[in-house]
Structure formats: C-alpha cells, structure tokens
Amino acid sequence: MTLKYKYILFLLIHLCTVTSVMAQKAERDYIRKGNRLFNDSTFVDAEVNYRKALEVNPKSTVSMYNLGNTLSQQKKVKEAIEQYTEASKIEKDKMKLAHIYHNTGVLFQATKDYKQAVEAYKMSLRNNSKDNETRYNLALAQKLLKDQQQKQNKDKNKKDKDEKNQKDKDKNKDDQNKQNKKDSKDKQEPPKSQKQDNKMSKENAEQLLNSVMQDEKSVQDKVKKQQIMQGGRLEKDW
C-alpha cells in the first residue's frame, strides 16, 4: 500500500471517529436537556429532545426509556409502552431492564390490564429480585387480577341467566300468542263435527222437501183422478 493510500485511509478513519464522537456528544446533549426539562415538568419539550437523541442514535435505550417516561407523564400510555418494549429488546443491563419492566407494569396496572402488569412485574423481578417495590406491586396486581376475573365470571353468569330468562319469557309469550290465535279461530269456526251436522241437516232438508213435493204431487194426482171419476159419474147420472 502506497503512502498516498495510507494517508487517505487514515483520514477516513479519523473522519469516522470524529463523526462518531460528535454524534455521541449530540446524543448526550439532547438527553441532558431532555432530563432538565423533564425535571421541570416541561414534558412536551422533554419529549422533543429525547426524540432528537433517538434521531442521532436510534438504538439508544436511555433515550427510549426517558421518552417512555415523559410520554407516560402526558397520559400517552400506549406510546410509552411501545418505547419501553423497544428498549427491553435492546438493553442488556439487568438493572436497567428491571426499571424498564417495572415502569411497563405500572402503566398496565393503571389501565387495569392486570394480566399484562403481572407479567411485566415478574420480568422486572427476574432481573432484580431484591426490588421490594416491584414485589409489592406484583402482589397487588395479582389480587386485582383475581378480583377482576371473579367479577367477569359473575357478570357472565348473570348475563347468561338474564338471556335464558328472556328466552323463556319470549317462548312463553309466543306460546300464549299461538294459543290465543287458536282460541280465536275455534270461536269463529264451528267444530268439524258441527259442520258435518250442518251438512247433514241440509241434506235431510233437501230430502224432506223432495218427499213433501212428491207427496203433494201424489195427492194432486189422486184429487185429479177423483175429480175425473166424479165428473164422469155426474155426467153419466145426467
């Protein structure tokens, strides 16, 4: 390698080193400024500086953790948990991981997601088993989770019972409506046997009428015959 190329390589390495140092300095400056603003409760401005630090170093777990803290102070729970989660994927230091999981558990507990809170506190204790505050929070979250599950089961049983009672009421109502319709129909229409009786009565009336008409014709024929006979006799007697 010639002296010229060695010089160029030296300049490149030096430039990279200088750039890296400047980036680290910028990151630290943003974090420090963000911390001051956070301590002054100027959370929006603190958030801006932590995000600038992440622009310089996207893998800065310190910036992620601090950003999560300032977001939680602004009630941006979902975004804060996302920052803690990303930090937990990168961070290797156990004490820092314990803090990350502890804060995650606090946010889950605040939103009554006790199941997730319990898991977060357990992860925190795996990284720092001596943290009594986390141990207390875990016990509390476990009790709240148990109470929540019992209430959910009670509410579910009540809902199922109410739905069953409503179905029974609806069924009884349908049965009553059907019975009312049947009773109404029975009142409006005579029974089948009565219809048959009516039909038979009509046939009997027709037969009786035919019989009467036949008898009347027979009587008329007899009268007419007698008249002829009598007429004959009168004519003969004359």
Score class of each variant (00 low, 15 high):
4 K>L: 08
5 Y>K: 06
10 F>R: 03
12 L>E: 01
13 I>Y: 00
14 H>R: 00
24 Q>G: 13
26 A>D: 09
30 Y>H: 12
33 K>S: 10
37 L>Q: 05
38 F>Y: 05
38 F>T: 04
48 V>M: 13
55 E>A: 10
58 P>Q: 08
58 P>G: 10
59 K>T: 09
60 S>A: 09
75 K>G: 01
77 V>Q: 06
90 I>L: 12
102 H>W: 00
109 Q>S: 15
109 Q>L: 13
111 T>N: 11
112 K>L: 09
113 D>V: 02
117 A>C: 13
117 A>Y: 03
118 V>G: 11
125 L>F: 08
126 R>H: 01
127 N>L: 07
129 S>L: 08
130 K>E: 12
131 D>F: 03
143 K>D: 15
149 Q>L: 14
151 K>T: 02
152 Q>K: 07
159 K>F: 06
161 K>S: 14
162 D>H: 03
162 D>T: 06
165 N>I: 05
165 N>S: 12
170 D>W: 00
172 N>T: 10
172 N>M: 15
186 D>C: 02
186 D>K: 04
196 Q>D: 15
200 M>V: 10
206 E>G: 03
207 Q>T: 07
207 Q>W: 02
207 Q>E: 11
214 Q>L: 15
218 S>N: 11
218 S>H: 04
220 Q>F: 04
225 K>A: 00
235 E>D: 07
238 W>H: 06
